[in-house]
Design a protein around this nucleic acid. Structure first.
Lengths: 334, 334
DNA sequence: CCTTGTTGACGTAACGTTAATTCAACATAG
DNA sequence: CTATGTTGAATTAACGTTACGTCAACAAGG
């Protein structure tokens, strides 16, 4: 492939001029005629800049890594979009990795740890990374930003507590009194349980214990089964994880429980799928796209050595999307 | 950060020795004691190799790009796993891009086209890339492998025709006679329609015209609605796209059609979600993981200048996973 | 004794880019 | 006419690696 040297030779100018043309440096000036001559030579030779050489020289790769705990989770779709978009605006490309494969010594981790791979790292799912992996990453000279609540790193997160509070309050307003929270483990589930608790308390209702069955479809199914075994079965469920909601629907059908007539369901996080399920699932939409964008901006603040704006995103609030899986309780029970 | 030069100084050896220790070169030899001294110095200084410099020197980045037409499609989960795994075995990292954002002049495309970004490119969804984008990519000196049927490039694909043939034959064996194919546009849908046609012909049945409603949930719903409007409504449907199957279930429910009692449904491609829907969806599992692995291997053949094994993957055959969405037709209609 | 081979290492030239430094040619002001 | 600027460019030193070529020291074989 043609290099700047070839272009310089073809255009009859020095290397410096070609470089200046390539990235519009003001320091090395030239006549407009020279510029076009260089541009023509580039065209003719099919010159393509060499990223590697550029990165070496500038000590900057224009790549950032994003590590997700479960890359397949559809809630990450908008997050990824936000990150890709914002990264592109910064002229950067995204290297996507899965937390599950990030073991110590793995190819991806080794790559990340080596110099000149990425300019910064975004992580969602810090809790799922082994401690030694986090330690290795932390020793990396490039900045790290966590896309959830964190203690040892700059972070930015969505308002999980508020989301479940909104979901719970919605059910309270539909006259439900026995509402249960089907959740999982970890800080995020805990926050969501807190929001549930808060809304229950505010309504003068007794919060049920946290049914921490885990993540995913099976967890939702398990949650429903456990909940329905209680002395007084709940009339409504707040589901921690949107994929769990799928399991909740399945388990309810299997148990012969009609949704929403016998059991109302509200999910946290909204994905396209929810509107195509039957019944379509009422869910709280979280600003994942904005989280992605804000994460990249904060990371670039860090990269530039500027103070980075972190904390919980409150501007686009979690938003309830009402569909068919929750309905008002007409027959008051106790 | 410490460089090889620093390590060399600390260990009292030359640069060449450090480099040899780092990548086990046989040309430059050394005493075992020297080797351990270098290793110790590395440890002490926290030396991390610089990928960028390495790439520049070797003209090889140990990265490959994978471009998917709809990155969020869950059927790509196993494909991605296969690609990531096989790439890691080759010491390479994967740069994931979405065909939707690959416009001419976009950040990602520009990056791909520049030298020293990736060693090769994997594409699924060639048809969705603009012609000028494909032309630009093709002019790239690094090899390109298409993960579906292609004319202008080496390719490797799954057996779509066989898949729908299997699905259709299954329904035929359940005594269905009015079977319809809900599909979309493009080569893949066409192949699947062909498989359907083939199975229908083999059973002496008349294939219905291709109901090409597109991709995704809405397409599935549209397909059902159209199919049920026919003079003789079908008793079974083969759904081209797995996400369409979700839409089929929803539309059937909305129309008051019981699945599988009034309408049997078989999907092509299987994803976790299918077993959690109600009814759980009978589907043909495609070897997407193997496609990913085989794609990487073929790409590395190309990179090494070896002849690459392409064509349709037949070893793990498409496999029917029987669940609850299809049942035998007992009441013979006409 | 010289020749040949082996062990263990060193020096250095690239790879392609960027940016600091230098400089010739010419114009303008005093 | 000289001093001072400006325009338009060329030279060159890195950035961190890798691998080729070289070489000293020593051993063994004739």
């Amino acid at each position: 492939m043609a290099t700047q040297r070839d272009v310089a030779r073809a255009a009859g100018v020095s290397l410096a001029v070609v470089s200046a043309v390539v990235n519009g440096t003001s320091h090395t000036r030239m006549k407009e005629s020279t510029r076009t001559r260089v541009l023509q030579a580039m065209q003719q030779l099919g010159y393509q800049p060499n990223q590697t050489a550029r990165s070496l020289r500038l000590n900057q790769t224009d790549m950032i890594a994003m590590i997700l705990n479960k890359i397949d989770n559809p809630v990450y779709g908008p997050l990824r979009h936000g990150v890709y978009e914002a990264a592109a605006e910064h002229g950067a490309t995204v290297l996507l990795g899965d937390a599950e494969t990030m073991r110590s010594g793995s190819q991806f981790l080794t790559r990340l740890l080596s110099q000149g791979t990425v300019d910064g790292i975004l992580i969602r799912g810090e809790g799922l990374l082994d401690d030694d992996v986090m330690a290795e990453l932390s020793s990396h000279p490039k900045p790290i930003l966590i896309l959830e609540h964190a203690l040892d790193h700059p972070w930015i997160d969505i308002d999980d507590r508020r989301a479940s509070e909104i979901a719970t309050r919605f059910l309270v307003n539909l006259h439900h009194r026995h509402i249960v929270f089907v959740g999982g483990s970890g800080y995020i589930s805990q926050q969501r349980y807190l929001g549930y608790q808060q809304a229950m308390d505010a309504a003068g209702l007794t919060p049920a214990p946290h049914l921490a069955t885990g993540f995913g479809e099976q967890a939702g199914a398990d949650g429903v089964r456990q909940a329905m075994q209680a002395a007084t079965a709940p009339t409504a469920i707040v589901v921690n994880n949107i994929m769990s909601a799928v399991g909740v629907l399945a388990a309810a059908r299997d148990l012969g429980i009609a949704i929403p007539d016998q059991l109302s369901v509200v999910g946290i996080h909204d994905v396209d799928l929810m509107q195509h399920l039957r019944p379509a699932v009422t869910a709280v939409r979280m600003p994942m796209y904005q989280l992605g964008r804000a994460g990249v901006e904060a990371l670039y603040d860090l990269i530039a050595g500027r103070p980075s704006a972190g904390g919980v995103i409150t501007d686009p609030e979690p938003k309830l999307v009402i569909r068919d899986s929750a309905t008002a309780l007409t027959r008051i029970r106790d």
